[in-house]
């Protein structure tokens, strides 16, 4: 956060309470990632195990029923890939 956007002491909320629920979404943890999950739709059985076990709650289902990770948040832990029943998710190195 840049210095200029930080509030002064007069502008703080009561007791420093955070008033906007789930505002952690402003924090894009996708930048932590060194590997990304890639789904092979030919093997996917659309079971949703990947979504269920994601500690970031960043996997969603698209209109066709396939799953995808939100790269804004995916930290690349690889749990989805490890837990996938059909091994349809591979972790691929992020290229800079």
């Amino acid at each position: 956060m840049s210095e200029s956007r930080l509030p002064g002491w007069k502008d703080l909320t009561l007791g420093l309470a955070i008033l906007e629920p789930m505002s952690a979404r402003n924090n894009l943890t996708g930048s932590w990632r060194s590997e990304r999950p890639v789904w092979d739709h030919t093997k996917c059985i659309k079971c949703g195990v990947c979504q269920m076990y994601c500690p970031e709650a960043c996997i969603s289902q698209d209109a066709d029923g396939y799953f995808q990770a939100d790269m804004d948040y995916c930290k690349g832990c690889g749990i989805c890939s490890r837990e996938c029943w059909t091994q349809c998710i591979t972790m691929q190195q992020e290229e800079v």
């Binding site: 703080l12 420093l16 309470a17």
Partner: peptide, 16 residues
């Protein structure tokens, strides 16, 4: 739903 008692990072502890 508010969050009471968050972590006061160095950017804000002094102001609190």
């Amino acid at each position: 739903p508010i969050t009471m008692g968050p972590v006061g990072i160095p950017d804000i502890y002094l102001e609190t």
